[in-house]
Design a protein around this nucleic acid. Structure first.
Lengths: 356, 356
DNA sequence: ATTAGCACTCGGTCGTTGAGAGTGCTAATA
DNA sequence: TATTAGCACTCTCAACGACCGAGTGCTAAT
């Protein structure tokens, strides 16, 4: 078996400590364990796979793998289970990540074409699709630029002394805020005010707006204040909103405890998720896999995280990925995340070919 | 005891079948069970509460209550547990719902005052506060009118052939949609177009807009099309978006099974929640309690639901409430939901005193 | 270097048992 | 007549022990 399988072909892939066979065994253990969820023993392996050797040999190899820290013995008698280190080795050296099946690709693209042309809708769709295909929890952040720059704002009269400020950034994020007015102002006046002020703040960041002066008109100053505050809150929001989907997928997972779910929910809700994960995320654009507490806070000890950035480099970037129990199908997940990141990047590129 | 307690004072409250003492016993059982989670026996009751009678008497009363269907015997020997019917009787006839403690009221109002003046923000805040105080899952829908009427729209140029349509309804809901343009159009042209068209569609519903004609200008027709479609989607969205919070609160609940959580998550995600619950909800404005499968689909069999509408009658109304296991503190939950509904109604009233 | 064989370990399952809590019934009591 | 004390009975739950099976490590043979 070891000669014909893809495993064998990868022998030369620079790896000091492990023999070809050990790697093959490790791969089989990971596959089997991910699939069945039960610790895998030497005998099961020889029975279930056409390994050309006896269980005793496998046992020896297992002993080696164990002392090297790749698998571990939960109980004296009860098969082996991959350690976090084992998973990492698998992901880095053993795993193949094929393209998503053509059928699935078409189905997904179709869904996106059906949807309205809106960033919000795309994010939602990406989250649900990702969760469904990967069978775990998906996380998606909105695409953002470094600091929000104003493209346009409008004022709309709601009541005589209440107006709605609608603000659009260069990257087309839209925010609306209510503004209480000190005096009665009608729609015409508001429109004129917007027409006058917009040209002078177009393309600026909150900080840049703060550095300018805008005369003495109380109303103008009030509006400018709100514009500034809203832009600032957009910058701050960068580390909050992370959309997620598919919580139900990991509800019943036996290897995830009550407390683990609790932690994750807390992170996702409080917006602490991004700040927890970001430090570990390199700014490169390929899929990155984090297993166990590798660079992650302790709350995610029992999870694996497959992330990718997406978007147009240096223009708009967001993060998307999948969160699941350490025991998950990494190759499938990586394939899915990679495809989805590409798709979202394509959509973004289409939407923002140039930012004028 | 029965003489001095509030229970006794409510004797006259028209109820045919149950004696005063039976009602008292039922109330104690509900309280004790809600608090401890363990089936409650006659002896425990006499030990834990200053009931002036012996356990044997309680036993007799319990037997009566059981044959009347208010409590039930899980196992031959193991205390009694309120049935859904028992909970309903408790909620309708026995329960007191005091005002929320002044301190809590102040704290909550303060949080709302701190927040920006935005419907979105209020909803979010209501959801989290409700979940936190009630210790269960909260649900909040956006305030909506019957059919969306246009207040205003704006067009903002994103790229030469891509514009952002921002639409505001009379009730100040804001939606943005991307519009692909057939030809290159600059911001000035877009603004002029909006200025021309807005007055002729102001205050109209999607259907009313469909009934008018707007000349032959391709661009105008395209925009009108999008406006109409967006208004329509707002009407349709009425039964989708329901915000929730506090899922983590019911994660560990022993009386909720894996599958129950699954169902609820499904309902909340797919937007089926409202359509499942709405038919049962009377349009009156006081708090309504649903227990078990009373008027609710089977998925919610093991849940209790405390709901209230909020808003300004016939102008804007939304729904908010709390979902929890059947075994929850109804009086506390009702108090909380009622307060929150009033608060949100106040905020809405402040925001839409008149809709011109 | 590989493998067959064997003794040993240990977790999971299945009855059994005993304690505890609760019930229903009956007879005594106020 | 309503209440209560007493009692026999039931049933859950946790602890215990035996057993089975899967798995290991080691040794000796190939």
């Amino acid at each position: 078996m070891f000669e014909h399988q893809p495993i064998g072909e990868r022998v030369g892939t620079e790896n000091p400590e492990l023999t070809t066979r050990q790697r093959a065994v490790l791969e089989l253990i990971v596959h089997e364990y991910v699939q069945t969820g039960r610790a895998v023993g030497s005998k099961t392996l020889t029975e279930r796979y056409p390994v050309g050797v006896s269980s005793a040999t496998i046992r020896n190899e297992m002993a080696e793998l164990e002392s090297a820290g790749y698998i571990s013995h939960l109980h004296t008698s009860g098969g082996r289970v991959p350690t976090d280190q084992g998973y990492r080795y698998y992901v880095r050296h053993l795993m193949r990540t094929p393209e998503l099946p053509a059928g699935e690709q078409i189905m997904i693209r179709h869904q996106f074409r059906q949807a309205e042309v809106q960033v919000e809708g795309w994010m939602e769709l990406a989250a649900t699709t990702l969760a469904e295909i990967a069978g775990n929890v998906s996380v998606v952040t909105a695409p953002r630029t470094a600091t929000a720059r104003l493209r346009h704002f409008e004022l709309i009269s709601l009541q005589s002394r209440l107006a709605l400020l609608i603000l659009v950034t260069l990257e087309s994020t839209v925010r609306q805020v209510m503004v209480h007015l000190p005096e009665s102002v009608d729609q015409d006046q508001l429109s004129r005010l917007a027409d006058t002020v917009v040209p002078s703040v177009r393309g600026l960041t909150a900080a840049e707006i703060a550095g300018r002066t805008f005369g003495n008109d109380e109303l103008v100053l009030l509006v400018i204040d709100h514009v500034q505050a809203t832009l600032r809150s957009l910058d701050a929001a960068e580390q909050t909103a992370v959309r997620h989907s598919g919580l139900e997928n990991i509800l019943g997972t036996p290897d995830l405890g009550e407390g683990d779910l609790h932690h994750v929910l807390g992170l996702l809700r409080g917006g602490g998720f991004l700040s927890a994960v970001l430090p570990a995320l390199a700014p490169r654009s390929d899929v990155q896999v984090f297993i166990g507490d590798e660079n992650l806070p302790g709350e995610l000890r029992r999870f694996g995280l497959v992330l990718s950035t997406y978007g147009v480099e240096d223009v708009v970037t967001g993060i998307l990925g999948v969160l699941g129990p350490t025991r998950m199908s990494y190759w499938r997940t990586v394939s899915t995340v990679r495809y989805m990141a590409r798709l979202m990047s394509d959509l973004m590129a289409e939407l923002y070919p140039t930012v004028d």
